[in-house]
Simulated assay, not measured.
Amino acid sequence: MTLGAAAPASAAYPEKPVRLVVGFSAGGTTDVTARILSKELTEALGQAVIVENKPGAGSNIATDYVKRAKPDGYTLLMVAVTSTINQTLYKNVSFDLNTDFDPVALAVRVPNILVVNPNVPVKSVKELVDYAKANPGKLNFASSGSGTSIHMAGELFKMLAGVDVQHIPYKGSSPAVTDLIGGQVDFMFDNMPSAWPQVEAGKLRALAVTTEARAENAPDLPTMQESGFPTFDVSSWFGVIAPKGTPADVVEKLNAAIRAALKKDDVKARLADLGAVPADTTPAEFGQFIKSEVEGWAPVVKASGATVD
């Protein structure tokens, strides 16, 4: 009797519920994106995909937890841009995103926008740079906290523009935007979903979007690249990674399910409400993207002087 080739050990995957770990509290953009995906993956895979929140240390606790999990596809991480910044920001991190994980798929990108208080006498990025250079040390920019992607976007601008502006960290984007509207701070780079309603209400003035392409819901708003910063391409993003050594066929099955979900009209509509743009990447493409993000943020973090023990 001739036996056929043995099927992969993971061919029946998944045979039990899958955990999608989020390194932040419930309700944030990372968590909301994970819950949209988990619903779609539950339907596609035939097993419950359960979101598990493990906040702390800027998402490092969750990242370390997933790194140590069994590489069988049943414990996944909803990774965000924060983790690529943390590789340099934290003096002692217990993981390496490039070597300790298998990339699965980039899910979405969320544009940031450069906004100013309307009383700041500028209407373009060039005018902001000129005004900052004419008033060294007088302008300040807000962020949702030291070391966040919003903070680092401001530091990147400061570095590329060669301007002397001061960073004012807040405990979250909401209080930062409140003080920006009130005139306590002059400008900031914020996630489009939280800042754009204030722009539409006339409480803030938008100067540019930070992604390479213009935002669909703000087609008249120029990009930073169009505004004289050809290498400026910054966004918040979220994707899925697995512990190193996860079977390749499991990674491919998850990748296919995620990409299919992101192409569904109702999913795209829900993501659009977050200001998120669906991605479509192979595991290898996402791995290269993570590598470029880690390398790209390292000099910005070092130039900012920000560090966490």
Rank of each mutant, 00 (worst) to 15 (best):
A206G: 07
G305S: 14
N140D: 15
F95P: 11
T2C: 07
E295P: 13
M188K: 02
V104A: 10
P169W: 06
E43P: 04
L41C: 10
A298G: 12
A257D: 01
I150N: 06
R214Y: 03
A303M: 11
E40C: 12
G275K: 07
V185M: 05
N217A: 09
A261Q: 08
P71N: 08
V125T: 06
V93R: 12
E295T: 14
P222V: 09
D233L: 03
A306D: 11
T29M: 01
F157I: 07
K263E: 05
L160C: 08
N92E: 15
V277Y: 00
V267D: 04
L77W: 00
F189K: 02
A132E: 06
D265W: 10
Y170L: 02
V81N: 08
P8A: 10
L114W: 02
W196C: 00
T2N: 14
E226G: 13
F141S: 03
A11S: 14
K253N: 13
Y65I: 04
S304Y: 04
G154H: 01
R259I: 01
T281W: 10
G46Y: 11
V21L: 08
V22C: 07
V22I: 15
P71K: 10
V21A: 10
L180C: 03
M1T: 13
Q288T: 14
A6F: 09
S292L: 07
D186S: 08
A195E: 00
R109C: 01
E40Y: 08
S236G: 14
P230W: 09
P55M: 05
N53R: 11
A176F: 03
P55C: 10
P136K: 14
